[in-house]
Design a protein around this nucleic acid. Structure first.
Lengths: 224, 224
DNA sequence: ACAACTTTGAACTAGATAGTTAATTATAAT
DNA sequence: ATTATAATTAACTATCTAGTTCAAAGTTGT
């Protein structure tokens, strides 16, 4: 019987050293598993089985389960915030910039359900691991800075009402974009999947853009 | 040495039968523990220790951990939807009714973090337990019905724009109210606690009301 | 009085699971 | 060549934890 592929791969202990790749591999699988099953739900043996390497190496590089989870959480944040940097809004007029930011955020969250689930899980854990991570504080302020810039330009041009708060606005955009992904399972189970069809999602996104834009624009007197 | 209180309480096996109370007690503690630690994070022994009764009785009445979790989830939904029934909006003009509904929902979610956490946890589990529960489907449609009524009255009076969708509107109100509680830990950790002070929460609530109201009102032409 | 149900309490089991040990081999940099 | 680091493999341990069993006794409705 000729050598199977597996035998060829594992042939007589020959391998390359590549610490970064091994750690990336572990981290990728760990993110999948934690995101799918939660911190206590995920199994180290299961993670090990799905990596190209072994359980031993997980402990070699990460020490324990909680550290692995923290690293996976950090990596998820970093990856998502990295994806956001592609967006350049500085050249657009403030209302268009904001509309595009909302639409982008909505889509971006939708494309990264694993990240959303990591954040959900971290919230279930009262953010105790995130709170201990020094890495994470810095990555996230950029989101606020970008909004502050748009607000400043909007107010200066008179397009936006005065007194807007960047953190509040970020909260509102996040709420609409995050909930859409985080609560899809229960919402669909209770009210059907209409909002999660292609058309349903497009409507929710357009509505989100509209809600945010009409919120920031100088208010119109409804009393007359 | 005289009888201690403990000895008096447990005196010579004499007790009242009260199956409902025992089950309620178990369910109350179970909700606390599941809500705090998640399904796999919660410990049956811990739940048992905090009840007035024993682990044996948990299995006597609920069979296994997953059933206990499902019952706790059902009870949490029932309790919260019950609390919502106090609200009577039929006599108010539609825009006031809607504004009051949004403000109420925002506050109501805030007052019931355990419920929110149960729903978060259920979403982490892809709503698999909720999906199997027959009880839960029915309890939740009333929320939609109430909104459909407000929309109908609003459209008829010309106060609201045509074409509003009750499920979409419910989604929007839920998103703003739910996210506020569910993501408080990570949001505070990343951006500070300003939005979760008394003033911050009041602002978020007022903004939510305003966002929803300006969204449903007949649109104003901004182009002129 | 009888039977069905409820409650107590504690010890026990079987399996799962995070983390370890140890012996060994290969690689890469100097 | 030497040495530190990277990688492999597999068995092992200690603990935790869901769920069970056993033996008994009190309660309640009929």
């Amino acid at each position: 019987m000729p050598n199977s592929l597996k035998e060829q791969e594992k042939q007589k202990g020959s391998w390359k050293q590549n610490p970064e790749a091994v750690q990336r591999d572990i981290l990728r699988i760990a993110t999948e598993e934690f995101s799918k099953n939660g911190l206590s739900g995920a199994r180290i043996d299961e993670i090990a089985a799905k990596t190209k390497t072994s359980k031993r190496m997980i402990y070699y590089y990460f020490g324990d389960k909680e550290t692995l989870y923290t690293r996976a959480l950090e990596a998820a944040y970093a990856k998502v915030r990295e994806g956001e940097r592609k967006l350049d809004l500085a050249d657009l007029p403030p209302d268009q910039a904001l509309g595009r930011l909302v639409a982008f955020t909505f889509d971006h969250h939708r494309r990264n359900p694993d990240f959303i689930r990591m954040v959900m899980i971290e919230n279930v854990h009262h953010a105790e691991y995130l709170a201990q991570s020094k890495v994470l504080r810095d990555v996230n302020v950029t989101a606020i800075d970008r909004l502050a810039d748009i607000i400043a330009r909007g107010e200066a041009s008179g397009l936006f009402r005065p007194g807007l708060n960047a953190t509040e606005l970020h909260w509102q955009i996040s709420a609409l974009s995050f909930f859409n992904v985080s609560n899809k399972p229960t919402f669909s189970a209770l009210y059907g999947g209409e909002l999660y069809t292609r058309n349903g999602q497009q409507a929710l996104r357009d509505n989100a853009v509209e809600m945010i834009l009409s919120y920031v624009r100088a208010p119109v007197d409804h009393s007359k």
